[in-house]
Write a protein that binds this DNA or RNA. Structure first.
Lengths: 203, 203
DNA sequence: GTCTATACTAAGATAGAC
DNA sequence: GTCTATCTTAGTATAGAC
């Protein structure tokens, strides 16, 4: 008779995620994962095609988790205040899960359809607030200003790029406030600080 | 008699850099580097303590190169226009050297004093322009808004995060313009869009 | 589905001779 | 400074039995 399952796909993904958390995307072996769930490395191949398939599964679960973290941010009626809270929640997630966060933006990741969908879905909680801030037509463009700032800021922070001194929290708040102000400003008087005219597409 | 040198430290660094360009920070071995300069792998240990020391040397030369790329950006008298050009030059460098760029911000890098200095020096060409835009006291804070955006944008672009559709160039221009407008705006009427008061340190 | 055994590949680093 | 030879360690993945 066939061996009864000692573990489950989900348990394996969870174990791999824990290893990513501690050692980073490349810092663990399949043997480590297997040991964590009480099986041997070769048995993993019965459940995942190869190492990268397992990592991809971890990535999916992380996007979900990021989306949840954002949706738990404090609600505010004022869009500026609401987006500030979302920004803080985003940064908090990245700082609490630095290696997981790095995995999400690893350039070596395979861009599967599922991964792209999960990435988009994770940002969905913020979209209505962008709409409230700058209107339907400019919401996506606005998200493409704030989101890169957030990603860049936390990445640089985690990489130790802000070594010149304290005030990192203040710098973050200042950055978010500046960008939100710029977005509001441009909504009122579009195309003022610009010096060069290009066609503007929302997406 | 001792063997005459077949190569030089600089040639080795250049060869390593070329391999980084093609295969990424972890995509080549010391044997590859050695072969590229016509020696054998063990000989490298006579010149570099280990692999990471060689990678660190590559990193230093890359910071220099980024600084040069920025200093070659078109000059403009208007600070907003000047910073827009610098932003374009920054993005162009990252897109032309994606793996080298990734190396510069790899979280696993050792944060040596030299690396920190080189990083700072690479940004130096932009500082006077920030001063012209927002004044001496706010220049560094301003740089800490635009720079993370730039880094975040190009990183996301390289990681394939903007899969939802075209207009990436336009999105970049829009982001830069929005941020510069926010900076100018805040200079005129500090603390308007903010909703929460925190102490603001320039550095 | 899981196991043992193993093939396969590869890389970093050191010893000691020239 | 460079070489050959070697140590050491490690990991992914497959074959075939239970």
């Amino acid at each position: 008779m066939p061996s009864p399952p000692k573990t489950s796909d989900d348990a394996i993904i969870a174990a791999a995620r824990k290893l990513v958390r501690r050692h980073g995307r490349d810092g663990f072996s399949l043997a480590h994962v297997a040991a964590a769930v009480g099986i041997k490395a070769p048995s993993l191949y019965g459940r995942f095609a190869d190492r990268s398939a397992l990592v991809a599964a971890v990535e999916l679960s992380l996007w979900r988790e990021l989306g949840q973290a954002l949706s738990r941010a404090p609600r505010r009626t004022d869009p500026v205040a609401a987006l500030s809270e979302l920004a803080r929640a985003y940064r908090a997630f990245a700082k609490a899960n630095p290696r997981e966060y790095a995995l999400l933006f690893d350039a070596r990741a395979e861009h599967s359809v599922k991964a792209t969908e999960a990435r988009t879905a994770s940002m969905a909680p913020a979209l209505p607030t962008f709409v409230a801030l700058v209107g339907e037509s400019a919401a996506l463009a606005a998200a493409r200003v704030l989101t890169p700032f957030l990603h860049g800021f936390v990445t640089m922070e985690l990489a130790g790029a802000f070594r010149l001194g304290g005030g990192i929290d203040a710098a973050f708040e200042h950055g978010v406030a500046t960008i939100l102000e710029g977005l509001v400003q441009r909504r009122r008087a579009p195309r003022r600080a610009g010096q060069r005219r290009r066609k503007q597409r929302t997406r």
